[in-house]
Amino acid sequence: MSAVSTSSFSIAGRQVGPGYEPYVIAEVSANHNGDIEKAKRIITQARQAGADAVKIQTYRPDTITLESDLADFRIVDGLWAGRTLYELYEWAHTPWEWHPELFAHARKEGITLFSSPFDSTAVDLLEELGAPAYKIASFEAVDIPLIEYVASKGKPMIISTGMADAAEIQEAVDAARGAGCEQLAILHCVSGYPAPAEDYNLRTIPDMIGRFGLVTGLSDHTLDNTTAITSIALGASLIEKHVTLDRSGGGPDDSFSLEPAELAALCRDTKTAWRSLGGIDYGRKSSEQGNVKFRRSLYFVKALRAGDVITEDAVRSVRPGYGLTPKYLHAILGKTVKVDVDMHTPVKAELIAD
């Protein structure tokens, strides 16, 4: 089953797609560090920075992994080395009892809140809370039953594609479509924490747009905003970035997350990048109208009487640009003027005989 081309869709009334300003998602992830008040402050800061949405993650350690010390379950390198998967997710998870309060706080702040569910019970909780959209995390892009269950709810879905190859992305897209999802986006992603910019290969984004026919964006794990802003020029319509109040906060994801001022810059600069794309236009732009005086054109540099021949010493190519363009210089030499002209008069076609 192939994907159906989608030019745009709506999340909580905000249109998302190539014809609209980039949709910026502030990912809280584990950056609340076990403090609900901190989670609420991140939501507030995201709204103040201009983000379109805040995203959390809905799982418990027992819904995402097994409590085991076996080698398969131990993390041996990277940011979280030395922990088991269960210990990491116990540390990082957003307690389910927080969810109603966080959704209420987001509504109060006037910003969209949705989540990444990691199993069907998480989806059921989010449905009870009226989540307006769902995000499938990169590592769950191969969980076809989860994708189908989320898709069955009829909400907009965003699937992150880190670690997935083209065939796996197609399988995820087909599963979502087959289970009833009509509003679908995919995010190009590198599942490194942090990820070096050179791993992103952003030219993949236009290929994804052509290959899958979907609204496409970027889940960015680099340490600054350059990669995200660049992706806009290549067709990204959504940007997701981890956010925190303090990068030195010591939480699981703090070290590769944006602080509030950086998030504000991301929201501003991605929108500027999108506006700068515009359309194909070789015409004079509104900001150029007042600068015609700085272009070259032809001017009479001595007075002529009606019937006088235009000679080389009678005209010059100079600024401003109110006369004929200099390409007409040789065409007018040897012609006569129809009326008297004063020195420093712009050369106009109507002044010249034939």
Score class of each variant (00 low, 15 high):
G251A: 15
E350C: 05
P320F: 03
Y200A: 08
P320I: 04
L113F: 02
E168A: 14
Y59F: 15
G278I: 06
L329I: 12
K153I: 04
Y134E: 01
I136L: 13
K302M: 08
F114A: 05
P18G: 15
T325V: 08
R316H: 03
T226N: 08
P326L: 10
H221P: 04
E90Q: 15
D124N: 13
I36Q: 13
E140M: 13
S287G: 01
M208Y: 14
Y89P: 05
V341L: 03
R316D: 10
V76R: 10
R316E: 14
A264E: 14
F300I: 04
A314F: 00
A314C: 14
A53K: 01
E240S: 07
D62N: 11
L146A: 01
R319L: 02
A151Q: 02
T336G: 03
L184F: 10
S120D: 07
L85A: 06
A104H: 08
D77S: 15
I56M: 13
E27T: 06
D224H: 07
T311F: 00
L146V: 02
R47W: 03
S116Q: 08
D72R: 05
D246S: 07
I239Y: 05
A265Y: 04
L70G: 12
A314W: 01
E90Y: 12
D119W: 05
S115K: 11
K135Y: 12
P145N: 11
T345N: 04
H99N: 12
L351Q: 14
E101F: 02
D165Y: 04
I75Q: 06
A3H: 08
A81G: 12
A167H: 11
S286G: 04
P320A: 06
E90M: 11
A353I: 05
A195N: 08
Q183D: 15
S257K: 03
V292H: 12
E67N: 15
Y89R: 08
K302C: 12
G50W: 00
G162Q: 04
A46C: 15
C189R: 02
R41H: 09
G307C: 05
T216S: 05
S5Y: 09
L129V: 08
D174F: 00
R268D: 12
A167P: 00
A53I: 07
N201L: 10
E128I: 02
I186H: 00
E240I: 05
K338E: 10
Y299N: 06
D342C: 02
F114I: 09
T311I: 02
S138P: 03
G213W: 02
H32V: 03
A12V: 01
P346Y: 01
G210Q: 13
